[in-house]
Design a protein around this nucleic acid. Sequence first.
DNA 1: GACTGAACTATACC
DNA 2: ACGGGTATAGTTCAGTC
Length: 816
Amino acid sequence: MELSFIPIDYDYFDFQGENYIKIIGRTKDGKRVCLIDNCDVYFYAILKENLSESKINQIIEKIKRIQLKEGARLSKVIKVELKDKNFLGEKVNALKIYISNHKDAKKISESLPHKYFKHIRELDVNYITRYIIEKKLFPLIWHKISGEVLNNSEEFGGIDSVLEVDFCIKIEKIEKSKEQPEFKPKVMAFDIETESFEIGQGEISMISLYDEKIKKVLTHKKINSKEKYIEYYDDEADMLEAFVKIVKKESPDILTGYFSDGFDLPYIKARAEKNRVKLSLGLDGSQLKFSGGMSPRGKIFGIVHVDLFKFIQTAYSQYLESETLGLNDVANELIGEKKSDYEFKPNEKMSEIDWKKFIEYNLQDSIITQKLFLKVWPDMIEFSKIIQEPLFHVSRDGMSSNVDNFIIHNLEKYNEIIEKKPIHDEIGKRRSEGKYEGAFVLEPKPGLYENVVMFDFTSMYASVIITYNLSKSTFLEKKEKNNIEVNLGNVKAYFTKKKGFFPEILEEIINLRKKYKKEYQQSPSPILKARSNAFKLIANAAYGYQGFFGARYYQREAAASTAALARENILEAIKKIKSYGYEIIYSDTDSIAFSQGKKSKKEILKMLDEINNNLPGIMELELEDFYKRGIWVTTRSGEVGAKKKYALINEKNKMKIRGFETVRRDWCNVARELQNKVLEKILSEGNEKSALEYTKKIIIQIEKREIEKEKLIIKTQLKKPLSEYKANTPHVTIAKKMLSLGIPVDPGILIKYYIAESDKKKSLARDRAKLPEEKTPYDIEYYLKKQVIPAVENIFHVFGIKLEDIIKGSKQQTLF
DNA sequence: GACTGAACTATACC
DNA sequence: ACGGGTATAGTTCAGTC
């Protein structure tokens, strides 16, 4: 049989002591198919130099005889081949040791004659990754498959008869299809509401499910509503059974939730256990499984469970402006949908109407989750195709894993043996190496500037890595002839000029990014945008990756050299721009702001060209934008210019605000909004007059207690468990109060509070911190002196105005 | 008891 | 444990006078 097939979910099983892969996917006409196949399982033992041919043959013969008994399984070496390979760019002789079961790789490696080997590698390449590398059956890409249909076959223990698929096929031939039509998966979203926020404590009140066909809320609460989407069940157990039944019947390709690895699925599992309900959601009847220890990942065979939160965290968060990564904020920003505002109440206090609203809210969450999924789907599918790892992994992995995997899947053409992941001791060693010097930041001279030009280096760190060939495999332990030398303060680092695979792969990523960006600009589509963006994200992560202790190709010197050469390049560019007679205002890492002065835009672009003609390698400086005005302020303490804090307005009146309190969520809105207004007025009008008037107005409103509570709320994130805090800050104090009221305070939540009035003049802020719903009037002095005035006084200082004098001069002098 | 600086904490920039 | 370093600024708290 021959068919067009797109792989969606990968899993493996053992049959007669050997490994097999089972892949669930779809055919072009929407049939669901399971493919069964296997591939060679092997690892490499890299030989020491100077071993004679006869000695090597002797070693091979010895290894061939290795056999291990693992429980009922007899594991053995199948064959051994001597190979010419590369390891970290060096030619090596390696034994490719084929074994019968990948689970025994480590055990078998332990019984090798280690004294003949420099390294043992590829023990930590998992079977699914190995299969994809070997057989080139890539995730979410269409393939032409030929094979034998298994129909009530005895083969593989009768696997085809338990699988709920249209066909089960044993693969004979795999070919990538020429045509790659868009694949639209069947996606079901779900969400639960519970009596408790702690996993498994208290019942699940309801479960909502949503896809193109299904729109349901399952509940065992007895309320009097005839809404069509509500399905009533006798108890929690019945409801859970119905959940399993509906998911199985609909059988989506993807089941998605928001934070569902961390909450919904673990909760469902805990309650199912309590109620003795089997969560046999897998296409082979297998149960929902969890893996991953500390941060569990819920897996269902054949239906890919995607926790949208995780993907958004790694692939989107750097572009989001949302204050939290909660479903509400993210959906609002990405798809413009707001959740219905429902206020949580303890169950026993809920009225009939509350329950109806709660059910509606629960359904709404699933609907939003599904829409959000469809919005980010182009990014997810492109990530999976580019990194060549299954959706299940790519949707959850962090960027370091993604970079790791991208490299692993691209090493074949370099004939490279894959480096191992670090384990405990190695991680500890790497972490103890300490920090290295990072980016250069120029101290600005505070002031309001007219006509500001901003240049920046395109993908600066990636360009530096490529231009100077910085990586683990190109790093030299000591100086060699004709190498690249980098000054790292008291020491020097050396890199060979012979192109390494890491910079070369990175260059390919950059080129592909350029290619797809161009294609996107010519004919925009979400897929092309996602593809271009995925390459950009991987390129941007490459620098952090080489300095990250968990990376396979970690090389601290390469990371330190990248930062050092970036500094060198930006300083050189600053010098160059200065030499053309421009006044430099500011610079941070890869960007330079300077005054246009009397020069024309044409002259500036000509200078840019000239600078670019002299830059090394692929380094490239580009125009970020021309700005009408920009403002830089001093630090709070005094005279020096504040770094990482400025505001600009371009010729289309679009503002770019960096670092100011306006963009910080741990300041109250009254201060943020005032500061934003002040910056806007000053930048668009070119003076401080109306901004000052506006500021006075707000100050008076605060003094008259005319500000609504909502605008005074300060939000601070709890970054770790309460018990680990050494300092009793206001937000920790409030978190403790919340805990005593029975509200869960897990790390990561945003603590909201305001500062209230108190008779004691000298009390600490934490003693006056109150929950938003408390009634004590707000502390006028605190909001003036600690929020509003600090937010704007540095800005007025630029114009020589001391805000305090102004206020003193007005009638409200009593406060000061 | 007022003052000062270090420690701790959160959040931004790139 | 699941990218890096640079930077500002708040609150608390221990030590000094």
